[in-house]
Write a protein that binds this DNA or RNA. Sequence first.
DNA 1: GTCAACCATTTGTGTGACGAATGAACTCGT
DNA 2: ACGAGTTCATTCGTCACACAAATGGTTGAC
Lengths: 266, 266
Amino acid sequence: MNACVAPRAVATLLDVTTTPAPDRNYRRDGVHGRLVHELGRRVIDGRYPIGDALPTETALVDQLGSGRSAIREAVKVLTAKGLVKARTKVGTVVQPESCWHLLDPDVLAWRYQNDPSDKQLEDLGGVRVAFEPEAARLAAGATDRGGIAAIQREYLLMEQTIDDPDEFIGHDLAFHAAIVHTGGNQLLEQLSALMSAAFAAARQVHTRNVRRNKRTLAGHRAVLDAIVGRRVDEAAELMRVLVTGAQHDIRRDLRSRPRGDAHARA
Amino acid sequence: MNACVAPRAVATLLDVTTTPAPDRNYRRDGVHGRLVHELGRRVIDGRYPIGDALPTETALVDQLGSGRSAIREAVKVLTAKGLVKARTKVGTVVQPESCWHLLDPDVLAWRYQNDPSDKQLEDLGGVRVAFEPEAARLAAGATDRGGIAAIQREYLLMEQTIDDPDEFIGHDLAFHAAIVHTGGNQLLEQLSALMSAAFAAARQVHTRNVRRNKRTLAGHRAVLDAIVGRRVDEAAELMRVLVTGAQHDIRRDLRSRPRGDAHARA
DNA sequence: GTCAACCATTTGTGTGACGAATGAACTCGT
DNA sequence: ACGAGTTCATTCGTCACACAAATGGTTGAC
């Protein structure tokens, strides 16, 4: 377990907006963090349209009430995230979406906090469907007994909290995080943490459906058994069934809840 | 096709180090880009050990011969990549690896350019194994006829350039890039571009083995046929066979070539 | 009409100053 | 001797200003 990715998955789930900024390397409350988030959101939201230039640095200084150094440092960060590109005389222009570093934690959060489209949620789920089965396969082949014990522990907690959706979803995420962690692939682990954070940010998909949870519990159990039994192909296939099922559930929810309507059926 | 991810995959493959910096939003030759890369590499290489503080800003100004503004802007970029964390009085300390944004293009490149460990290459391949089959599945289910035509085109080019390993590997990558693009998942596409760039940076795995290429050609053909025939499950399974095969090839190469020895058997 | 020179604007870079945070050293009381 | 509070020095945080470099647009010569 480490301080920056794995345990966060659980903690960031329940209250995304209220959490100050525990896992970022800069303080959101300082001038720098505030500027980065403000400008970043404006770009992602389309308030600064693609192809257009941001206000000039001096204009931003006036509008945002901070020094030019702070503005420049923030813009440089956005540049590093692929959102904008600065050129002398032309200005700082917003790059096309294909340039954005969508796998950057901030970009992902900004994108999925702000009323993500169905397509965007579909893409997000697609990534989960892609890597979760492989993570289960790796976990099933792993020799890390402690890791497998952690998976088992989280499964049991899921069983115990089946009637409390908020608790349950936390252990659900922890179950998947434990599997990815046990798999031992750093890149997949980061990817998993990113996806979890994005799903948590996209509050559309926060469903608290006890009946559905009870149904998926069996699927989780099957995955667990396959991992414990070292049946790698079976673990992968069962996990695939599980996450595609979740993907279908999300699709159904989105269809029945046209748009902009968060927290339905609480 | 877009300007920032897909076509790059091919172009960046053959000469990574010689390419100026066409796909970055900042110029590598300017003061800022130079500082970001210099400091970033020092962190990734361990020249600034984890947990230690970087030299103070004024010290860096002296050592690197640039103004404090430029140093600060560069450090802010590294902070945004999760590499370091600045605190007053204590200094700018290097964060543990688990905090690094490994899916950041720069971080990935720095990490895999610099003599990556077998474990790191294994992780990289693991990600490919995870998402390529799903990408093939999506492509097989896609209605985008132009995309499928592009896949077909690249396959034919692979056939035609089978005796020229350099050309062949370019079309091989383009084949996979076309599949991911046709799949239509933006996140997977970025992930694919990242992995391609990282593999290109890791020159250990640049094998130019015509016999092996001829063998994989059949696998590619099978994937292509499944996609054209809209057999989604078969496309995924065949792609899985293909990329796991590549993964095994890389493992074998690494075993037979203990370490630090690039470009063997040219 | 074409092309070159010029100009205005915007980011790029360097420098100095002061503020805020904080770890370390120091003082003082017990 | 030990602990608590204070002071101090160091380092990043922020702002302001000045000038350089790049470049799109304008102007003017022919």
